[in-house]
Amino acid sequence: MNKGTVKFFNDSKGFGFIKDENSNQEYFVHVTGLVDEIRENDEVTFELKEGKRGLNAVNVKRV
């Protein structure tokens, strides 16, 4: 499990970005990859899965 912070999330469009706490990489997250509802600045745990345009955050849960 990776840990990070929600940098941006647009509820109406259903996507955003999570910044990994260790690598400082930012990963795309889609509403289909959420376990819990998230908002900007939420602390989350997540897994990474290869998507069409690189790694995506999936199984995203608030800490």
Results as ranks from 00 to 15, higher is better:
Phe46Met: 05
Val58Trp: 08
Gly14Thr: 08
Glu37Ile: 01
Val6Ile: 13
Glu50His: 11
Lys3His: 14
Val6His: 09
Val29Pro: 09
Gln25Pro: 07
Asn22Cys: 05
Glu43Met: 03
Arg62Glu: 00
Thr5Gln: 14
Glu43Ile: 03
Phe28Thr: 05
Gly4Pro: 07
Asp36Trp: 06
Glu47Asp: 09
Glu50Cys: 03
Arg39Asn: 05
Thr5Glu: 14
Val35Trp: 09
Gln25Asp: 15
Phe46Leu: 05
Arg39Thr: 00
Tyr27Pro: 08
Asn10Glu: 10
Asn59Glu: 13
Asn24Asp: 15
Ser23His: 09
Thr45Ser: 13
Val31Glu: 08
Asn41Leu: 02
Ser23Leu: 09
Phe28Trp: 04
Asp20Pro: 13
Asn41Gln: 07
Gly14Ile: 12
Glu40Pro: 12
Glu26Ala: 12
Lys52Ala: 09
Leu55Met: 12
Gly4Lys: 01
Ser12Tyr: 11
Lys52Asp: 15
Thr45Tyr: 08
Leu34Asp: 04
Leu34Ala: 01
Gln25Lys: 14
Ser23Ala: 05
Asn24His: 14
Ser12Thr: 14
Phe8Leu: 05
Ser23Ile: 06
Phe8Val: 01
Phe15Met: 12
Ser23Trp: 07
Lys52Ser: 13
Gly54Gln: 06
Arg62Leu: 11
Thr32Phe: 11
Thr5Lys: 15
Asn22Met: 06
Val44Met: 06
Ile18Gln: 10
Glu43Asp: 01
Lys19Val: 12
Asn2Ile: 02
Lys49Ile: 02
Thr45Asp: 08
Asn41Ala: 10
Val35Gln: 15
Ile38Phe: 10
Tyr27Lys: 10
Gly16Pro: 07
His30Thr: 11
Thr32Asp: 10
Met1Pro: 03
Glu47Met: 09
Lys61Trp: 01
Val58Lys: 09
Glu43Gln: 07
Ser23Glu: 02
Asn2Cys: 04
Lys19Asn: 10
Glu26Ser: 15
Leu48Glu: 00
Gly14Trp: 13
Gly16Cys: 09
Phe28Glu: 01
Lys7Tyr: 12
Asp11Pro: 05
Lys13Glu: 05
Glu40His: 04
Gly54Cys: 04
Thr5Phe: 12
Val6Met: 10
Met1Asn: 04
Gln25Ile: 11
Thr32Leu: 14
Arg53Thr: 12
Phe9Pro: 02
Lys61Ser: 12
Phe28Ile: 05
Gly51Asp: 02
Asn41Gly: 00
Phe8Ser: 08
Asp42Leu: 03
Glu50Gly: 05
Thr5Ala: 08
Asp42Arg: 06
Ser12Ala: 14
Lys49Asn: 09
Val29Cys: 12
Leu48Thr: 02
Phe8Lys: 08
Phe17Met: 09
Ala57Phe: 04
Tyr27Met: 06
Glu43Cys: 00
Thr32Ile: 13
